[in-house]
Nucleic acid binder design. Sequence first.
DNA 1: CGCTTTTGACCCGCGC
DNA 2: GCGCGGGTCAAAAGCG
Length: 335
Amino acid sequence: MEYVSLVDTSLDLNSNPLRFIEEAPKKEVQSNFIQLERKVPVKEEIQSTSALVEELNRVNAENKRLTEMLTVLCENYTVLRSQLMEYMSKNAPPEEEEQPPAVSRKRKAESTAVASTITTTNNIGINNGGNIGGNSESSSTDEDSCKKPREEHVKATISRLYVRTEASDTSLIVKDGYQWRKYGQKVTRDNPCPRAYFKCSFAPICPVKKKVQRSMEDQSLLVATYEGEHNHPDPSRTEATAASNRGMTLNPVPCSASLSSSAPTITLDLTKKPKPPSPANDAKNSGRTVINTPEFQQFLVQQMASSLTKDPSFKAALAAAISGRMVQQHEIEKW
DNA sequence: CGCTTTTGACCCGCGC
DNA sequence: GCGCGGGTCAAAAGCG
């Protein structure tokens, strides 16, 4: 519940450069427009500046809409989460160590992981791979560590990402910023939807694999399971480092984000824990304590900002606003 | 032409 | 040992 109240979802997108336009300097800009009108009585220039102002207003309005969308999203998440907590507190199983005898070690580990992610609905949308809400990673690794301790080191991390797509979208593509090469597809027994297998396109240098499968209960939900960690920078983000130098916050951790005006969806990949909070966090250091830390909130805000900066239309609008501002500043400097 | 995707075959681990 | 199921391989097809 306190989640939304603690996290400022406004993203403060006006901080730069839009803030210059929306806040105090707005008057300065407008006054410069007047000066321009006085000193440069060219009709076209006036028209272009008014067009720029219109564009800026439009971008500001879009920014507000996006902020509202984020707020609604977080509120919905909070409601769902509180309902889940309520439900779990009422129906909490007395002992979760119960092991069905007929399931093999390997498959049992996976089935428990799946069960934990399904029963803990707070994993939908935000999942940390077993540290918030679920214990999929710990359960599987504990099982495996008894048997094959070496592979335990190879398969360093297993994380899950939930991506909501349109129901009509039949592709098993999860845009997470990395490039993947599909190497297989299977129809598994427990789920009629095919499961796609991907390797990082940097393989064999990068050992990361991912499996993508639709959720059996919610066909519009894609479940991406990541194995391992990338040992190279996100290729889609290398060009964005320049943007970060201009004040945009971009996070190096994997992040899947999609924003479209037609079907607004925002998906944040929180499968990786924010590094600042606690480097030595284990399965016990779970959910609420991490969420409530200011570092996590900062991380969440960064993820949201990152999501927005990955949206082409948003970037185009932002670029238009920046260029508009630069033109205005140029004119100001001239006068 | 080179890269990616598709898809059937194959491998391996596990339960019976 | 056999069958089942998940995961991977690799040839063929598709695509820019």
